[in-house]
Amino acid sequence: MFELIGIPPQALFGQLLLGLINGAFYALLSLGLALIFGLLNIINFSHGAQYMMGAFVAWLLLRYAELPYWGALILAPLVVGALGVVIERLMLRRLYELDHLYGLLLTFGLALVIEGGFRHIYGISGQPYAIPPSLQGGTNLGFMFLPTYRAWVVVASLALCLGTWAVIEKTRLGAYLRAATENPTLVRAFGINVPVMITLTYGGGVALAGLAGVMAAPIYSVNPVMGSNLIIIVFAVVVIGGMGSILGSVITGYGLGLVEGLTKVFWPEASSTVIFVIMAVVLLIKPAGLFGRA
């Protein structure tokens, strides 16, 4: 087959797939962050810890309840989302009137507490989580080998992102959400219970992070710091896409995953910094982000 400036296609497509996988997680996580920021005005710094909890809950369910992957895919996000609801009710609720900074500090503190707790109990070595039997193996596409589980992650994440976007843009519930993001007081005065909507939005955004964690479990090892490694990049993605833009965060998530993959091929040394360079450039040229409304 062809070669591109000395790069074998296997390596090129391999890295692109890796980029796409990372992009799938960036997109899922920044989608939840954008949802939460839009309605709650809170920068949810515990998003990474909640993603990690999703993976851990899946692992615990498998280990102690013998609940397989597919069950965990449903149950773990519900557990993580329910914890989110409790956090919103008990703590975040008190911060809405205050500066963003308070929410950021609280959720950052929570992230440290959650990660510290898991590290204390499980250490940092990481627990393996097997790919479910139905998604093992792969397909040889000729130019590359496509592992089934990775294909599943990309497709599932894309479907989730598009599904969430469609709910927000095309349904009545989504219209309430968009309207309440703009003017919660008025939406409430129309008879909508906005406080409950806010609680459920936080729960939903956090559940999405938990779901991403379950999907990540078979790819990365399940360990307490898996979220904090990822969340820094996800925040850069959110800044590049524009805080609060749903579609923007999804497109940026996938796009930056691919950019990162390509950089690994052509200039490996820069691959871990490229996203932050892009972030700096975007902030200089378009401070509200690529898709943000200034």
Binding site: A175, Y176, R178, A179, T181, F190, G191
Partner: peptide, 19 residues
């Protein structure tokens, strides 16, 4: 007036729930 920028005219019109 409180017209929502992120909603089109029809969505604005149909936003308030029937009570």
């Amino acid at each position: 007036r409180g017209i929502f920028a992120s909603l089109n005219v029809r969505e604005n019109l149909e936003l308030p729930p029937v009570v």
